[in-house]
């Protein structure tokens, strides 16, 4: 039981770190916080692996450590630290306080939704499940509310982490190759986004999402 508490606790930490990723100024900071968050995620995986005795999850933790804690932050750090749009600032559209309240709202909502789901396998880890869902939506919220396109990359990463956690919680015994595929996708996604973001910056001289509204109608 204790380990499930641990898992749920770690999951709670994820929310905090994701708020940090969202709210921090500058992409480099966000990348650092993201690495931190991914590390917590890996810990969660490990706890989960220990609890369920899943050999696959150990492998997942390893691959997640490589991809999420090292590779992705590195890519982002390298790609984004040069990009800076002073006119835009952090590009947030709402104050940190509101963001926190919003996040809290999302978490509560997700708890409520998850409590309604009858999943025998996930009875013990419902809080973690709720957190993973909330995490996902926090990432989405990051994409939707932030004007800085780099933040949207982070938003995507948060969503990805959230869904990854869900996957681990609900499908702990899924073949490791699957996880490798997902992780690879994530890396490539981040790489492509980073590349596109860079080219957008070079072309538009801005990171403002509002500049990207010429195609419409």
């Amino acid at each position: 039981m204790f380990d499930f508490q641990l898992i749920n606790g770690l999951a709670g930490l994820l929310i905090v770190t994701s708020l940090l990723v969202i709210l921090s100024r500058g992409p480099a900071n966000s990348a650092r916080f993201y690495a931190l968050q991914s590390f917590i995620l890996v810990l969660t995986f490990l706890a989960l692996a220990k609890e369920t005795g899943s050999r696959e999850l150990y492998l997942w933790s390893a691959s997640a450590f490589v991809t999420k804690v090292i590779l992705v932050p590195a890519i982002m750090y390298r790609a984004f630290s040069k990009l800076d749009d002073p006119r835009l600032g952090s590009g947030e559209t709402m104050s940190p306080a509101v963001s926190v309240i919003l996040a809290a709202g999302v978490v509560i909502l997700c708890f409520w939704v998850v409590s309604g789901v009858a999943l025998p396998a996930a009875e013990a880890i419902k809080p973690a499940l709720a957190v993973s869902l909330a995490h996902f939506f926090l990432g989405l919220a990051c994409i939707v509310t932030q004007r800085n396109i780099l933040k949207q990359v982070f938003g995507y990463c948060l969503m990805e982490n959230g869904s990854h956690l869900t996957l681990a919680l609900l499908a702990a015994k899924a073949p490791e190759l699957v996880e490798v595929g997902i992780a690879t996708d994530a890396i490539f996604a981040v790489a492509i986004m980073a590349m596109l973001g860079t080219r957008i910056f070079l072309t538009f001289h801005s990171l403002d999402a509002r500049k990207l509204t010429t195609l419409k109608g």
Binding site: I143, T213, K216, G217
Partner: peptide, 17 residues
């Protein structure tokens, strides 16, 4: 209806939600 396709992809994400 063109209003629907306003150009801001963040709004588009909200449509999905």
């Amino acid at each position: 209806l063109q209003v629907v396709q306003g150009g801001d992809f963040r709004i588009y994400c909200l449509y999905i939600v």
